[in-house]
Computed example of a mutant assay.
Amino acid sequence: MLSDNAKVLLKKKFEGLTDKVSLITFTQEFECRFCKETRELVLDIAAASPLIEAKVLDFVKDAGEAKRLRVNKIPAIAITGKKDYGIRYYGVPAGFELPVLVDDIIDVSRGATTLPATVKARLAEIKKPVHIQVFVSPTCPYCPAAIRTSHQLAIENTNIRTDVVEISEFVYLAQKYSVMGTPKVVINEDTSFTGAQPPEFFIEQMLAALRTSFNPMYS
């Protein structure tokens, strides 16, 4: 799926990896729309570094593993390192999203991000589970920033998990959450905003969601 030039650039980029990273991809025997592209992309990325392992699992046959990783639709990619940071991609991360996936892999390998110390200190206030969904489209120039921020927050605080959802592949979810523009961020089902916002704004919205949520799952 990746060009030869892109593969060369990836190998150079991944020279900075420090620990192993697993790209756990869920598809199924009768592949869904974009399952093939997602699987091929993951295999190409894994081939760029000996520290990246690609695991291709069947969503039906490996239902137990899907449940453990909280994967509930396909195609899906879970990025894990020394631990599971709750980073998930639903849909093929193409277009503007591919560079973000690469940066995610590097961060997970290092187990740390470049977020400022002030942001990390504020993140410590998040002491209950937070589920962030970032709804994106491949041609959206602002989506990568929202994805990147949400994933950095998840890496720095284990109470946070983040799903990136391609609206063109999961139209029913775009309708459910009234996605009129991207990126749209939904936090714990009942707090949302649109646009690429700074980490501080994400944190304020997460704290607001924790204060207002009546869902026992997040209490």
Score class of each variant (00 low, 15 high):
Ala78Lys: 15
Ser3Phe: 06
Lys55Gln: 14
Gln205Lys: 13
Thr38His: 10
Lys176Val: 07
Ser168Thr: 15
Val108Tyr: 09
Leu207Asn: 08
Ala48Gln: 03
Ala66Ser: 15
Pro199Gln: 04
Val100Glu: 11
Pro50Ala: 07
Ile126Ala: 08
Thr80Val: 15
Pro138His: 04
Ile187Pro: 08
Ser168Pro: 02
Pro93Arg: 09
Leu101Asn: 04
Val42His: 00
Gln133Leu: 14
Ala54Thr: 06
Pro141Glu: 02
Val102Met: 08
Gly91Thr: 08
Val165Phe: 10
Ser137Gly: 07
Thr114Glu: 01
Val119Leu: 08
Tyr90Asn: 00
Ile160Asn: 05
Asn215Ile: 06
Arg39Pro: 05
Leu115Val: 13
Lys12Gln: 14
Glu65Asp: 08
Phe135Val: 05
Asp62Arg: 02
Ile167Lys: 12
Glu169Leu: 14
Thr162Lys: 03
Met217Val: 14
Glu29Cys: 02
Glu37Gly: 06
Ile74Gly: 02
Asp190Gln: 13
Tyr177Val: 13
Asp104Pro: 08
Ala78Gln: 11
Ala121Asn: 14
Glu189His: 09
Asn157Gly: 05
Val100Arg: 05
Pro129Ile: 03
Pro138Arg: 06
Glu156Ala: 12
Val100Gln: 09
Lys55Asp: 00
Thr191Tyr: 09
Ala112Thr: 15
Lys73Gly: 11
Ser219Thr: 04
Ser137Ala: 12
Asn159Arg: 14
Val186Phe: 04
Ser213Ala: 10
Ala76Asp: 07
Glu65Cys: 11
Ala54Met: 08
Lys128Trp: 10
Asn157Glu: 03
Val134Gln: 04
Ala78Arg: 15
Thr149Leu: 00
Lys127Leu: 11
Ala78Ser: 15
